[in-house]
Amino acid sequence: MAESTIWWLLAGGAVALELATGTFYLLMLAVGLVAAAIAAHLGLDLTGQMLVAAVVGGGAVVLWHWKRSKEPKPVHAQANTDVQMDIGETVHVAQWNADATANVKYRGSQWSVVLADNDGTPEPGLFKVRELHGNRLVVAKL
């Protein structure tokens, strides 16, 4: 069996494993294996093929990791508008309790409300829902 065929089979195996696990890093390593197969087609010796696979695959992994580190961190689920439909909605707080909580009628039922950290003193008025903690709405003054 030709060396290039082995590289192609390894690349196909890496892609199949990536599809089973869902990690993009295996796809980057598969790119390195494809580069090694092309190097084998061009007549490079086995050491050169391995070097090409390591440099291209490893470089692709490093570049992908660097790119991902530059992206903003995802918002946790309690404050993510894709997960919680209540984020950004407005509630009216008529009266705050002594422990800085309140009860409001929202979406047809009673909800416990707590003021977001460092958002001043609790005063009655309109508030925007920032996140949910269990069955409590964390709100901020509009």
Rank of each mutant, 00 (worst) to 15 (best):
R136N: 13
T121R: 14
K141M: 10
A79G: 08
L9E: 11
D119K: 11
A60L: 02
E123K: 14
W66D: 09
V138W: 00
G57D: 03
A36K: 01
P74K: 11
Y25P: 01
A54S: 14
L27H: 04
A36M: 05
A116M: 11
Q84N: 12
H65W: 15
T101R: 06
A20S: 13
A60Y: 01
A60E: 02
R68A: 08
D117W: 07
A40N: 06
L26I: 07
V91T: 06
E89N: 12
A2L: 09
M85P: 13
H133V: 15
V55R: 09
A14C: 11
V138H: 02
A53M: 11
Q84C: 08
D117F: 09
V138A: 02
V15D: 03
N103E: 15
L46R: 11
D117M: 11
V55F: 15
L44H: 11
A54N: 08
V83R: 08
G120M: 10
A39I: 07
L142G: 07
P124D: 04
L132S: 06
H133C: 04
K73S: 14
L42N: 10
V93N: 00
S69N: 12
V104I: 12
V114A: 08
G13L: 10
G120D: 10
G125I: 08
H65Q: 15
W64Q: 04
V139H: 00
A11Q: 03
H76G: 04
W111Y: 13
G32Y: 03
